[in-house]
C-alpha cells in the first residue's frame, strides 16, 4: 500500500487527511499517485502551486514511489 497524506487547502479540497492506495507491480511515480488521488477524490488538484513530498522529503513529481512509501500533497508553505 501507498500511504497518501494531504495538508492545508489540499486536504480541504480532497475532503480527507489521508488515503491508502494499492501499489501496482513495478511501482509508479508521484505524478501517477496524484492521478489516482484525483480519481478517488473526484476533484482536480494539479496546478502550478501543488507541491509533493516522499517519505517526508520534498520531491519532484517524477520521483518513483514504492510499496509502503508515504506521499504527501500540499500547497506552498507559509510558516515563519
Amino acid at each position: 500500500m501507498i500511504h497518501v497524506r494531504f495538508f492545508a487547502s489540499v486536504r480541504e479540497r480532497v475532503g480527507m487527511a489521508e488515503m491508502q492506495l494499492p501499489c501496482p507491480l513495478g511501482g509508479f511515480s508521484v505524478e501517477e499517485v496524484l492521478t489516482m488521488v484525483e480519481g478517488q477524490a473526484g476533484t482536480e488538484l494539479r496546478d502550478v502551486h501543488l507541491l509533493a513530498s516522499l517519505n517526508q522529503q520534498h520531491v519532484p513529481f517524477t520521483t518513483p514511489v514504492h510499496d509502503e512509501d508515504e506521499v504527501a500533497f500540499f500547497p506552498p508553505v507559509t510558516g515563519g
Binding site: 495538508f7 500540499f74 510558516g79
Partner: peptide
C-alpha cells in the same frame, strides 16, 4: 525555513477564514 518547512497559516477574519498564500 519560510520557504521549505511544512507549515501553513490560516487567518480567521471578520469575513471568514482564508489560507495565507505568499
Amino acid at each position: 525555513l519560510k520557504s521549505s518547512a511544512p507549515f501553513w497559516k490560516k487567518e480567521m477574519t471578520p469575513q471568514g477564514s482564508r489560507w495565507v498564500t505568499d
